[in-house]
């Protein structure tokens, strides 16, 4: 089973290389002769390597890629979503508000045990302190621009 998993991962990578390379080549039609040399070269490398990986996967040769372990994709997706929304809303909602909310949400995602109300309040307080502390350090002491 684990071998199959590793094989399917290789097939996925191969498809990614071939697909990305093909898509990139299709986009070169409007480029000048010199402008398309590098994208074309990179695309051909991706396609050639993708075909090589596909061949490896079909022949079930050893690839050096370990089998997939169990991954908590829900938590990963939640974290990814929080980070993306945080980044996208920085300009509209402001740095302090978005950072305060995101910091608390990430703490909740990272935590395994169910959180009590007092625990949420404590994390929110710690999150606000963290954001304000870093914001002060960066903007006032180190003159780093903040969103």
């Amino acid at each position: 089973m684990s071998r199959m998993t590793a094989q399917w991962r290789l097939i996925l990578v191969a498809m990614l290389g071939i697909g990305l390379g093909t898509l990139a080549i299709l986009q070169t039609s409007h480029m000048s002769e010199l402008g398309r040399v590098f994208p074309m070269t990179a695309s051909l490398i991706a396609i050639a390597a993708g075909l090589g990986v596909l061949l490896q996967a079909l022949l079930r040769s050893s690839s050096g890629v370990p089998a997939t372990e169990h991954v908590d994709y829900l938590r990963a997706a939640l974290l990814g979503a929080v980070l993306l929304i945080w980044a996208a809303s920085l300009q509209r909602l402001g740095f302090e508000l978005t950072s305060g909310i995101a910091v608390v949400l990430i703490a909740m995602i990272a935590r395994r045990d169910p959180m009590s109300v007092s625990s949420i309040v404590l994390h929110a307080f710690a999150g606000v302190l963290l954001v304000l502390g870093f914001a002060f350090l960066l903007s006032e002491v180190l003159n780093v621009r903040l969103p």
Binding site: W86, L90, S99, A102, I106, A107, M108, V131, L146, P147
Partner: peptide, 21 residues
């Protein structure tokens, strides 16, 4: 980790913004 993960996330956001605002 509930404290470490938000702190790292915060620094990555600030770091990527601060270069060119």
């Amino acid at each position: 980790k509930t404290a470490l993960a938000p702190a790292i996330a915060f620094l990555t956001i600030v770091g990527s913004f601060a270069i060119e605002a």
